[in-house]
Design a protein around this nucleic acid. Structure first.
Lengths: 223, 223
DNA sequence: GGCGCGGATTGATCAAGATCAAGGCAGCCT
DNA sequence: AGGCTGCCTTGATCTTGATCAATCCGCGCC
């Protein structure tokens, strides 16, 4: 089942999600720019390319990742509707980004954000970057110290929060993407989801939609 | 062997380290504030405390970390002489910080950085935060996808770069700290270092000083 | 509706690293 | 100097998650 764009939540931001929110402001950063449509699995930008543009997800979803020389891939983050990505410290991208599904983006030149002239824009951008840092450190905690079931449970809880889904979760990504985000293999992710279903915490309904039957218990599992 | 403050390198910044540098500017952010001495293992700040101050390491070293409810610890980063830390998106710290050895810090109120008024200060702060984000994402790649020996090798290479040690490396942290940074156990770190020594890549000389005999081979091991 | 394809699940086995358990060593204190 | 204490190292065994190998299933297409 391919996720249809219609199912993406309308509200771009939730009120105070329990896990590190992506922006400091509730209504995020306004981007003025061209809209760009990217087909599933198409590259938005690649490692080493010049980083003079920033992107905001309108519909769909994006994976940001790095790869080792032998092809091992680590997904650093998923970008969901409302998220801004592509801001880098230097002049070139140190990660790659690809669309998970057919995706609509707004693209703006970095310079158009007015970070030098507009203190409000600068502060928003700052909040954005710091929230990303928080998320990345949370992610490091998960990758370094949590077990497979804790990783999968926290992934589901985080996704539910970010997608604004209280119980019915429509995932935009494949099992392989989840595995590469959580530092596991696809088999382990699959087995863990099956176990969670057997324990009655979730119900799998087609491989990309998951019913969170006991969200509280799931959150407790995250340790 | 306790590391003496005298052994800390004088130069606060290296020229262009190969791994993500901590600051965009070569001479970093100037902090005007009070100096603070923190004894080994003493807390600089704790999770949940108000984050209205920033810190710069003068001598010694600091670990920044998060803990799970059951005590598992993930060290997010080590802060070495010249590094600035303690900047947070919100008003409270989401991580804790403790001195690794007897440490001297400069403390400044966050507001004194003049990020709102001085565009240069703002840009430096920005570079700092983005470099931290890069480092954190590198760290996630290591934790998610690298083997134990790759983790240890990349740790040694990174430390050598940051401490400005070309071959003789004086580590300010214990094996347990290294393990908690790399998402391994203390036994695995110890065994891996022994293996590296047997392979002739390093020579252990007292448990906190390591001679990198084949830095190039070590770097190749990082994958 | 039937077929085929690609991702997902499941099973069997393997191995990297964790855990449990002793020693060893260095620095420190008296 | 001697002993003590706290890390560090080493060894034996166990467990978790990886790997290898079939299916299975859902979906799109004919």
């Amino acid at each position: 089942m391919q996720m249809s764009p219609i199912m993406v939540p309308r509200r771009l931001y939730q009120a105070a999600p329990p896990v590190a929110p992506r922006t400091a402001d509730t209504d995020g950063v306004r981007l003025i720019g061209v809209t760009l449509t990217v087909a599933r699995d198409q590259e938005v930008f690649g490692e080493g390319e010049p980083a003079d543009q920033v992107y905001k997800v309108v519909r769909g979803a994006v994976r940001g990742f790095r790869v080792l020389s032998d092809g091992r891939r680590q997904i650093c983050d998923f970008y969901l509707p409302g998220d801004v990505f592509g801001i880098e410290p230097g002049c070139e991208h140190r990660a790659s980004a690809e669309a998970l599904t057919d995706t609509v983006l707004i693209v703006a030149r970095r310079s158009s954000l007015g970070e030098d002239t507009d203190p409000t824009a600068a502060r928003r951008l700052w909040g954005l970057a710091m929230a990303d840092l928080q998320r990345s450190q949370d992610h490091a905690l998960t990758l370094g110290r949590r077990s497979a079931s804790e990783r999968v449970a926290s992934f589901l809880v985080d996704m539910a929060n970010r997608l604004g889904a209280s119980e019915m979760l429509e995932l935009p990504m494949s099992r392989q993407d989840i595995a590469d985000y959580l530092g596991l293999t696809i088999e382990t992710v699959s087995r863990t989801l099956t176990q969670l279903q057997v324990s009655g915490l979730i119900k799998l309904a087609g491989c990309r939609s998951i019913h969170l039957r006991k969200p509280r218990a799931l959150a407790d599992l995250c340790a």
